[in-house]
């Protein structure tokens, strides 16, 4: 998520930054020294993979990877996302500094939800588990984004062709793409390195 500075209201900035700060503090407290390189490199890996544009008809989308990140990093996903989004903000000016908290929160919460689903539900097909986790990631992101915009200004929900309605329509194809991508990815990792997928929140 790349909300720029000024897009959301000041109270929303304060609230989301406080929540993200709390989540980040909790995650950092639990980080062990030997986990630092892994979190860093996975953060870089996710950052790079999110640069890939996936084709949908005449246009393309960038994957969110919230589900996959949650499955692989568990609670540490908050740190990886925060750093990834900070790098995107300062290197590409995608996102903002006052919106770093909200942008992190919008992906971190769905990532943690995806992790909970992946580790709690037992399904025979690892692909299906990955697919549903990917879908949970996108649905969570969209629901949070829509709520943040709705409570920030009435301009985002004004009329039939409002920003919020367009966001929901635009994210529908990503739901399928992200599900497939996470499913195939998790299936591939489970064959090559299954131990990587057993991280809990």
């Amino acid at each position: 998520m790349h909300l720029s500075d000024g897009v959301i209201s000041i109270p929303m900035v304060v609230a989301t930054t406080t929540i993200t700060g709390g989540l980040l503090f909790q995650s950092i407290r639990k980080v062990k020294e030997e986990q630092i390189p892994m979190i860093s490199l996975l953060s870089g890996g996710f950052f790079v993979f999110s640069l890939i544009s996936l084709p949908i008809g005449p246009t393309s989308v960038h994957p969110l990877l919230a589900g996959l990140l949650g499955i692989m990093l568990g609670g540490k996903a908050v740190i990886a996302l925060f750093i990834g989004l900070l790098l995107q903000a300062i290197l590409f000016q995608h996102g903002g500094l006052t919106t770093l908290g909200v942008n992190t929160l919008l992906v971190a919460v769905p990532a943690l939800m995806a992790n909970l689903f992946f580790n709690s539900f037992k399904l025979k097909s690892i692909f299906l588990k990955g697919f549903i986790s990917g879908v949970i990631g996108v649905i969570g992101c969209v629901l949070l984004l829509v709520s943040v915009l709705y409570f920030s200004s009435p301009h985002y929900s004004n009329g039939f062709f409002s920003v919020i309605h367009l966001i929901i329509v635009n994210y529908l194809p990503l739901l399928i793409i992200e599900g497939l991508l996470t499913g195939f990815s998790v299936e591939f990792i489970s064959r090559i390195r299954p131990s990587v997928l057993s991280v809990e929140v």
């Binding site: 890996g45 993979f49 890939i52 996959l68 990815s185």
Partner: peptide
């Protein structure tokens, strides 16, 4: 292909 590419990048990261 993209899924396996993502998986490959992440395993390489680890």
């Amino acid at each position: 292909l993209y899924g396996q590419l993502a998986g490959g990048i992440l395993i390489k990261s680890i």
